[in-house]
Write a protein that binds this DNA or RNA. Sequence first.
DNA 1: ATCTTTTTGTAACAATTGGTATATTAATTA
DNA 2: TAATTAATATACCAATTGTTACAAAAAGAT
Lengths: 202, 202
Amino acid sequence: MTTETKKARGRPRVFDPDEALDKALQIFWNRGYEGASLAELTETLGVNKPSLYAAFGNKEELFMKALSKYVQGPAAFVREIVNEPTAHAVAKRFLYQAAEFLTQSSHPKGCMIVQGALSGGESAEMIKSVLMEYRAGYEKLLTQRFEQAKADGDLPSDANPAALAKYLAMLHQGMSVQATSGASEEELKTVADLALSVWPKA
Amino acid sequence: MTTETKKARGRPRVFDPDEALDKALQIFWNRGYEGASLAELTETLGVNKPSLYAAFGNKEELFMKALSKYVQGPAAFVREIVNEPTAHAVAKRFLYQAAEFLTQSSHPKGCMIVQGALSGGESAEMIKSVLMEYRAGYEKLLTQRFEQAKADGDLPSDANPAALAKYLAMLHQGMSVQATSGASEEELKTVADLALSVWPKA
DNA sequence: ATCTTTTTGTAACAATTGGTATATTAATTA
DNA sequence: TAATTAATATACCAATTGTTACAAAAAGAT
């Protein structure tokens, strides 16, 4: 039930916008916002600049749309993790899935939300803050989940939900750097096990 | 006993190379390699481009010299940490000093070796790999220290030095991202305490 | 006072950046 | 078939990227 291909007015598109956006995502993913040039984008998408602008807007908007596809696609699993039955299961699945995801060779290594625009020039300021908010977002998601776990007695009464969430977020962000530097899934999972052995018991 | 200001031939320099390099370091530190433009560099150093090139070489060489100043200056403490008497003391001081250093407001937040060039275009490839080597370098330093600790009986015989070192490196790299995103020293130290409670006892 | 030597300032360089104007092409609708 | 609509391709745009030629300037050496 995708959007019905009704009567196509005017000259038909020579590219599939969804495929093109996916390729744009790949480029932004391993080059970052500033590192991805319009030249490389148009070249590998097979779409010339006017068509690209007509379809997605300027570079910033294109990045935002690629980012949106990222969080709803490959990185969507993060949102589901909080549904695990226990806080420990949440933590374990978070780190394990991160180790797998960040090292997969079917797409760029590392996390786009971490590496997309950590530093950069003035022109990346907007994107930098957007990514910061995303990072704060999933950390908050974890915090809330652990607050609930604490209320449920699933975490001890002296547990610190915010600290536990930041611990996981920090490990995830470090994993992202490590994955970009060539660390393997196994190495990251070994560290994940180590990191999890700290987990407070109810 | 600095280099004796002997007979100065030719027109005298209008800037102090060491001060200038320090300002360049600050810029690279919070903009990254690609995010720092020659325009911003010359502007805030108060040195015009020909003089900058004569003194330091091109942008890449300038970055390398700034990086060298970074590891020998503000980030030099890392090398000393392995001299702590126990593995646990090494780990604790590593994370604590990281928490302090990465959040200090007297200089850019985060670690230059982490954020200097994580992603980026083709032209940053060299710098990216240099920074990767630096990261691998301090991780290896920790690994060796923990191998020795294991031999000394300071770590249990089933301890995994490489995993412990990667755990710390990962936390440091995550801390760097967190610091850039506005996390405070206290928050990072709270997480450091949590992270340290995993440490194997001899 | 002239000659070196070195740095400075201006001004330019080619290449690349993100972004568009314009005219052509290809489809549907009338 | 003519009119309309929309996407295409080429070619351009101003601004910025890193880098350098060149001539003027400021010092010591002769």
